[in-house]
Amino acid sequence: MYLFLTGDSSALTNWTYTDNAPIAILIKAEILAEIELFYLLPHQRRWGKWFPEIIYYYANVDKTREKVKEMMDNGEWDSNEFTELKKALLEKLNMDK
C-alpha cells in the first residue's frame, strides 16, 4: 500500500521496476525527497549527520572493469558525454581504451 501511495504502480502492470536499476534508484530517491520535504522540520533538514554533502560508496573494481568492458564492446562507451570522467575512470581502473 505504501509503494502504491508513493507512485509505484508496478502492482498494476506486468512491468517491474526492479528490472531497471536506474528507475528503482530514482523511485527510492523520490521517496526520500518526499520524506525530507513533508515530514522533517527545517532545522532537521540541515543536520549534517543525516544529510552529508558528500556520499561515498564502494564499487568493486573487478565488476566495474567488467561493466566498462561490456559497455566498450556494445559501443556504449564511445559517446561525447562525460569524457573527462571516463578518462579518469580508465586511469583509476588501469585500463586502456
Score class of each variant (00 low, 15 high):
Arg45Val: 12
Arg46Pro: 01
Tyr17His: 12
Ile35Ala: 05
Thr16Asn: 12
Ile35Cys: 02
Ile54Leu: 12
Leu40Ile: 04
Pro22Glu: 04
Ala33Ile: 06
Tyr39His: 05
Tyr39Glu: 15
Ile54Met: 01
Ile54Gln: 03
Ala24Val: 02
Tyr17Ser: 12
Glu36Arg: 09
Ala29Arg: 08
Ile35Arg: 07
Phe51Ile: 06
Arg45Trp: 03
Ile23Pro: 00
His43Phe: 03
Pro42Glu: 04
Pro52Lys: 00
Ile31Trp: 02
Glu53Tyr: 04
Ala24Asn: 06
Thr18Gly: 06
Tyr39Ile: 07
Tyr17Val: 11
Tyr17Cys: 04
Leu41Met: 08
Trp47His: 04
Glu53Ala: 09
Phe38Arg: 13
Leu26Asn: 11
Leu41Ile: 01
Ile27Ser: 04
Gln44Ala: 09
Asn20Met: 14
Arg46Leu: 14
Pro52Cys: 06
Ile31His: 08
Ile23His: 07
Arg46Trp: 02
Asn20Gly: 05
Asp19Met: 13
Ile54Glu: 11
Trp15Leu: 10
Glu34Leu: 14
Ile35Lys: 06
Trp50His: 04
Phe51Gln: 01
Leu32Met: 15
Thr16Glu: 13
Glu34Gly: 11
Ile27Lys: 14
Arg46Ser: 13
Leu37Trp: 12
Ile25Met: 06
Ile54Ser: 09
Ile23Tyr: 08
Gln44Ile: 03
Thr16Tyr: 02
Thr18Leu: 15
Glu36Ala: 14
Ala29Cys: 05
Lys28Val: 08
Ala33Asn: 13
Ala21Gln: 12
Asp19Pro: 00
Asn20Gln: 12
Arg45Gln: 10
Arg45Cys: 04
Glu36Val: 09
Trp50Tyr: 04
Ala21Ser: 10
Arg45Tyr: 02
Ile54Val: 15
Ile35Glu: 08
Phe38Ile: 01
Leu26Pro: 02
Phe51Cys: 01
Glu53Ile: 03
Leu41Glu: 14
Ile23Lys: 13
Ala21Cys: 05
Lys28His: 08
Ile23Glu: 07
Ile25Asp: 06
Asp19Asn: 12
Leu37Pro: 00
Leu37Val: 05
Ala24Glu: 05
Tyr17Phe: 12
Asn20Phe: 15
Arg45Ala: 11
Thr18Ile: 07
Leu41Phe: 11
Phe38Gln: 05
Ile54His: 09
Pro52Arg: 09
Lys49Trp: 03
Asp19Tyr: 13
Ile25Arg: 08
Tyr17Gly: 15
Glu30Lys: 15
Pro42Gly: 01
Glu53Cys: 07
Trp50Gln: 06
Arg45Thr: 05
Thr18Glu: 15
Glu53Trp: 09
Arg45Met: 04
Glu34Ile: 14
